[in-house]
Design a binder for these strands. Structure first.
Lengths: 216, 216
DNA sequence: TATTTTTTTTAGACTTGTCTAAATTAATTC
DNA sequence: GAATTAATTTAGACAAGTCTAAAAAAAATA
């Protein structure tokens, strides 16, 4: 099939296109932890294989088959993360690295059985949607907590920052997926959000709020 | 840690030493699907890292740390095979290739959790013992069905050939792990073994018998 | 628009693991 | 024990993926 490395590039391009509508050489280098020169080489190779559309100096997009592969990797990543948390009882901040390896296990039959074993979960532990076996991804229209209006209530549905530090912070402050919160105001001093989670009231920084994705 | 490739060499050497008491360049080449020249290169590298004892033209043995790594890979392979069969309902002839990939997932915490999730199984689907988290491997003294005496009874405990063809044959003839069999004689024509499995009587070739491992 | 800065690409080199072909060592046979 | 055969190693090359440094193109700025 495709190499581990090719899969990682396709995945990185997929995520970049989703987040910023563009995928440039430098962005891809940053995302894959390589240098721009290496990226250029790989882009030529992926274009050769018709997995990306590439014209030099122009950035890239995925072809249909490139996107199919990328979504397959994302599906595997998220299903394995779900497995690790739901079945093996890892915490949500512990699973990323393992899933980075597991997502390259090639068998699609394996991943489909795993999906079935877990009852076809819709979302991974960070609230990201799990593509189905045909590559379809459900789209919830979430918004950053930063954009909630005063007295607006919503449910924490996903997080935009997957770093262990952020996830541990959320865990500690009970800002976990499924929790319902209400914005009761802003602090004068630093415009931090004042939240109410039905038990008590507390503040979160604008940076934290930005990375909390809310289903209104 | 160690590369995928290094791990495969160590595993191959481990299995060869177990089976034939020796691991020569050509044997390793055959086991890893490479050429002798490539093996020599890798042996130098593994010796450099003190994972094997190597003197040229002399074959190799594993050092303690080499063996520790090899046993770790075997543990992962067998636990994943157990998972695939026990939890994901794959057949015992379908899991080898997937386990060949899964055995290289690096996290030992993951494999220990998987072990616990499955209730610390002792044997994999082919009857091979699963090393514990300290690398200890239980040793049942099995013997090939070929060496059973007339009227001797035993229980099928493992198989020496893991090929899908062999496993499917056993499945079809109900010669699966746990079955109790009795040797009631030999055919005059080709010395095939006449077996009785408490329900009916049938013959198996000496080749098949050789690969059936029995707990007497 | 001309110049500077940034981004991207090219050129050439390195590493890992592989190969073939040739040379060397060990084992076998006469 | 000498000659042949088999096994192993060396030498040199290649592919994948990476790098640094330099060149080229695009974008930003004056």
């Amino acid at each position: 099939m495709h190499s581990f490395t090719e899969e990682n590039y396709l995945k990185a391009i997929f995520h970049l296109l989703l987040k910023t509508q563009s995928a440039t050489t430098n962005e891809i280098a940053a995302a894959t932890g390589t240098k721009a020169a290496s990226v250029t080489d790989m882009l030529k190779k992926l274009a050769e294989k018709k997995l990306i559309n590439y014209a030099r100096y122009q950035g890239v997009t995925l072809t249909d088959s490139g996107e199919r592969i990328a979504v397959g990797i994302v599906r595997k990543h998220r299903l394995w993360e779900h497995f690790l948390v739901d079945k093996l009882k890892f915490k949500w901040d512990e699973v990323h690295e393992m899933a980075e390896e597991l997502e390259h296990i090639s068998s699609t039959e394996l991943i489909n059985r795993l999906d079935e074993f877990m009852g076809h979960p819709q979302f991974d532990p960070h609230g990201d949607p799990i593509p189905d076996c045909n590559g379809r991804i459900s789209n919830q229209h979430l918004q950053s907590a930063l954009h909630l209006k005063k007295d607006q209530t919503g449910k924490i549905a996903a997080v935009a920052d997957h770093s262990p530090a952020f996830l541990q912070y959320l865990e500690k402050t009970q800002l976990t997926i499924g929790q319902t919160i209400t914005v009761t105001g802003l602090t004068d001093y630093d415009m931090a959000l004042v939240l109410n989670n039905s038990q008590n009231e507390f503040n979160i920084s604008r940076e934290v709020a930005k990375n909390l994705l809310i289903l209104v």
